[in-house]
Design a protein around this nucleic acid. Structure first.
Length: 437
DNA sequence: GCGATCAGAT
DNA sequence: CACATCTGATCGC
């Protein structure tokens, strides 16, 4: 079976069907309102939010995938007149509203594409997903796992969102006379805001576009665009910085809360330590490893010990993440026992390569060998990783395709500058039709 | 000149 | 390192 027939979060020409995991910007790059390339499968919530992101989009192209149910579509093999049936199921990814993983089954085998996801073992929703996956794969092995490797390194260690939400709440209640601004994106972290609103019995300010999204999600009477009715505001992350906070503090005492799985360290501290699984550096904010909710009074902006006053004197970084931390990824891989794994997030470093950390959990014998090959061709990795967003990659014909593609990439790279190469993959240029790694 | 797309910053 | 997003520059028609 040829690949290039199915794309996930990838919007180049050449596929017969396209799957969208969720509506964050880095997953819809290349998708436009003028889309005509084929049917677009997504979750019901994503479909509901779709017109906001893509006004004028031809909605007749959208196919809703109900969570937990098998769907199927007949695909035509490009090289012959034969057709084959692709079966697929969406599973809640617990990332942002509408985010799903896709499980694919067909004559090519069984593939799971997680998209961005969080796998909190304590969460009831994750248990539901676990049950769905178990049932859907009870009679087969998982040939290929495309994994959200954003935090696929042991240094990324943070608590559940429930615990992090309590930390946020604790910081807010310990500043009863401050205005609070919380950095959020256009989608995601709603549960944190709902929790704050519920416990403190207060509305939360959001910007107008965000209010529209909240209403579409069914949250009425909780959010407002009137600044006068609340001291808590959720603001776009891009407008959240030291200067903004300093400006706000000239008018009213204000603290900022940055919910993120990343250690937002001061610039002066950043870049000096390189992430490496051999000698993982301590996170600058070691409180992440414990529950600071019980000791919030000792929490100072940016971890307290970082007293280089210029940097975010007013900002608290809280490890509230919609991506899985390392230990969750590990549990996920152990649970699925895939034959092979590939990260969906490109990286020039090996620190988040799933095979590096989880190769031994895979069924493949040659995990280290595969990794070795990959490290050798590290310069070209970005192209390979980005290019591989087709769910197919588990049959022997796919492996042939992979080898061919590697050669093509290599020879191309010789003559094209790295900048140009990176640029090409960013544009989503279809590198080859065969399975990209 | 304009829309699409990119690198860079946050 | 880099979450997801914006801004401003540049590309290509």
């Amino acid at each position: 079976m040829e690949s290039g027939m199915v794309s996930v979060d990838r919007w180049c020409a050449g596929s017969q069907v396209y799957f969208l995991t969720h509506l964050h910007a880095d997953h819809i790059r290349g998708l436009t309102p003028k889309w005509t390339r084929g049917p677009l499968y997504c979750s019901r919530i994503t479909a509901k939010l779709f017109p906001i992101k893509f006004p004028g989009f031809d909605l007749s192209l959208i196919r809703i995938v109900e969570i937990g149910h098998w769907h199927s579509v007949s695909l035509l093999s490009p090289s012959s007149v034969s057709s084959t049936i692709l079966y697929f199921m969406a599973i809640d990814a617990h990332h942002c509203p509408g985010a799903v993983m896709y499980l694919f089954r067909g004559e090519f085998g069984c593939t799971l594409y997680t998209g961005d996801f969080r796998w909190e073992s304590t969460s009831e929703r994750a248990q539901t997903g676990r049950t769905m996956l178990l049932k859907a794969m009870q009679d087969v092995k998982l040939d290929m796992l495309y994994l959200d490797n954003t935090y696929c390194n042991p240094t990324y260690c943070f608590p559940s969102r429930e615990v992090a939400a309590r930390q946020v709440l604790s910081i807010i209640t310990s500043h009863p006379n401050h205005d609070i601004v919380i950095a959020v994106d256009t989608l995601g972290k709603e549960n944190l805001l709902l929790y704050i609103s519920r416990v403190l019995k207060t509305k939360i300010w959001v910007w107008p576009e965000r209010l529209q999204i909240m209403h579409l999600l069914g949250f009425h009477d909780i959010f407002t665009t009137k600044t006068s009715v609340t001291r808590i505001r959720a603001v776009p992350r891009y407008s959240f910085n030291i200067e903004t906070l300093e400006g706000l503090n000239t008018m009213c005492p204000t603290i900022g809360i940055m919910p993120s799985g990343l250690p937002w360290a001061p610039k002066s501290f950043r870049g000096k330590e390189k992430l490496s699984s051999e000698s993982p550096p301590l996170l600058l904010d070691n409180r992440w490893h414990t529950d600071i909710a019980t000791s919030s009074t000792s929490s100072k902006p940016n971890g307290g010990s970082l007293s280089s006053g210029r940097y975010d004197h007013y900002i608290y970084t809280i490890p509230y993440s919609d991506h899985s931390c390392f230990s969750e990824l590990q549990k996920f891989v152990e649970f699925l026992k895939p034959t092979n794994i590939k990260g969906i997030v490109s990286s020039s470093a090996s620190n988040v390569d799933p095979l590096y950390h989880f190769g031994s959990l895979c069924r493949i014998q040659q995990a280290s060998e595969l990794l070795c090959q990959r490290l050798k061709s590290k310069r070209y990795e970005k192209v390979g990783v980005i290019g591989m967003k087709s769910p197919f990659g588990c049959t022997s014909t796919m492996q042939l395709g992979r080898k061919r593609r590697k050669r093509q990439n290599f020879s191309a790279s010789i003559h094209v500058s790295r900048v140009r190469l990176l640029r090409r993959e960013r544009q989503g240029v279809k590198i080859v039709d065969t399975d990209p790694d």
